[in-house]
Amino acid sequence: MSLSCLAVAGSAGAAELELQGRRLVVSGTLDGSKVKAFTEHLGSGAVRVVVFEDSFGGTAEAAGAYADAIRESGVQTEVRGHCMAACAYAFLAGKTHRFGRGLQVNGILLPVAARPTAAELAVRWRGEEARKTLADFTPAPGATDAAAARPIETSVTAPAPKDNWQPDHGVLFTASPTLFGRIYNTYYCDGTQGRDFSKCERLSDADPYKLGVLTE
């Protein structure tokens, strides 16, 4: 199984929630349609783990709302399959955050405004730094409703005014199963590759555990 397994066509629909015991599975686009229900689930205290499964983006506003609910409830987060852009920032808000087990290729794409340096990679997605990075894609107070709803998802065709997000642009962390365990790789994708992530530039010395993207 290779990075090309992450290449997909089309975009997922609106977010869907499914409660599986003490695990809440979130799939689809984080567009804000399920924020209230999501917050209520976490507020009940019945959820221990939020599992993001094949979520290909959403809005910065929704990402912030999901992240706040996750952070306040102290739940863990997990990714099964793909977790792109808005999903990735919500994922990082977990008390611990990990990739799911199984035979699937897992990938998480964290959007960036520009190619990060080695020094930026080392701290960019730890604690408060993750919030600061999300703020790069969040409208300032007083922005118009149109700007507030601007997407940070991989399916958009052009950035909104004053938006520095580009489609499929970010740092991609992947985990692929092999006979000898999982292999972890990190790539910088400049957006020109579209959904063919095998064309992204591989980054050395960018282990997701060392960088705080995965914690267990």
Rank of each mutant, 00 (worst) to 15 (best):
A69L: 15
F180H: 09
R48T: 11
A160L: 11
E16M: 06
S2N: 06
R22E: 14
L110W: 06
D145I: 00
T39M: 00
K162R: 14
Q166P: 02
K34C: 01
L24T: 00
A90Q: 12
L109A: 08
T96A: 12
T154P: 01
H169P: 01
N185K: 15
G94A: 03
F52K: 04
F173K: 03
S73E: 11
Y184D: 00
F91V: 05
H97R: 15
G58C: 04
V47R: 03
W165A: 04
I70P: 04
P208W: 13
P139T: 04
R115Q: 13
T144P: 07
A85H: 07
N106S: 05
R23L: 00
A93K: 10
L109W: 05
I183L: 15
R124N: 11
A114W: 10
T174P: 01
L92M: 09
A37Y: 01
Y209T: 01
E78N: 01
L179D: 03
I152H: 10
H41K: 10
E153A: 15
V213I: 15
R126S: 01
N164M: 03
L3G: 10
W165N: 07
S2R: 14
V123D: 05
A147W: 09
P111N: 06
A148P: 00
G102L: 06
R202S: 13
A15P: 02
E120C: 06
A135Q: 12
C189K: 05
K199E: 08
H169F: 12
D205Q: 13
H82N: 04
G191K: 12
G10L: 11
A62H: 00
G74F: 03
H97C: 10
F99P: 05
E201L: 15
A88G: 04
Y89L: 04
A148Q: 12
H169A: 08
R23I: 09
D54I: 10
T138A: 05
G10F: 05
A12Q: 10
R22K: 08
S27Y: 09
K132D: 09
G100A: 14
F99L: 11
P141K: 13
A135E: 15
D168G: 01
V26G: 00
K34S: 07
G45S: 09
R101G: 08
T174W: 05
R182K: 12
D145H: 12
L6T: 03
E61G: 05
V171T: 14
G64F: 04
S11M: 03
H41N: 12
G32N: 06
E40G: 07
E120A: 08
G94V: 04
L3Q: 11
L17T: 14
R150F: 00
T178Q: 02
V112I: 10
R195I: 02
T178Y: 01
V112Q: 08
V156R: 10
W125R: 02
G64A: 13
L42R: 13
M84Y: 11
A130R: 15
Y89E: 02
P139G: 00
L134Y: 04
G212L: 06
V8M: 15
K95A: 03
S2Y: 13
D68T: 14
I183A: 10
G58K: 07
E72A: 08
T174N: 00
A135V: 12
G181Q: 09
S176E: 06
K132T: 14
A88S: 12
H97G: 06
D145S: 13
G81N: 10
G107F: 07
A160S: 07
A9H: 02
F173W: 08
P167H: 10
I152F: 08
K162W: 11
L24E: 02
G212V: 03
R131Y: 11
S73W: 07
